[in-house]
Amino acid sequence: MTCDRVRQKLVFYVDGSLGDAEKMEIEQHLKQCNVCAADYHVIVSTIDAARKIEVPEHDEAFWKIQYELTLSRAKQKLHRRTFMKRLRVASGIIGMVLLVFASMVYIEKNKPVNPVNPREIVYSIPDDILSESKIPIPVDELEKVVDSLAPEDHMMLLAEFLR
């Protein structure tokens, strides 16, 4: 194994993740090469120093209190989340109802007004006027004449009638 190759593998040799064959090759090389051996010692001392960096230790009673605090906060958060979820569903339903209502009002307000067809107006002509004695032509003839009138004649007739 060359020095370059050994130096690429040294870190993994120190952390113990190499296979037996590679381990043996490196050990062999370290016995013969002082430069690589020096590099090996630097890596070992760096990792050893890192392992000696302490982290504050907490006892069981401390973790028990921490657990209670965490559980209570977790429950609060869960309740808040459930409440917010329900609130969102309720707001959604209310929103939908309001939207449907507003749409109905809008549709009703903007309904197109059909122009009045004068032909569809039912004249309620008093019976005595319609009596054949007062009209020079029979009633069915008169109806035919009325049907054949132009809309503006209908309007005139209606105006005359209402006057």
Partner: peptide
């Protein structure tokens, strides 16, 4: 702790992690 180098912050992180786990 090794990441944030602060006891209170590390404890907060652990608490938040367990709240996420619970929920």
């Amino acid at each position: 702790y090794r990441m944030v180098k602060n006891d209170a912050d590390a404890l907060d992180i652990v608490q938040d992690a367990f709240i996420r786990v619970f929920n």
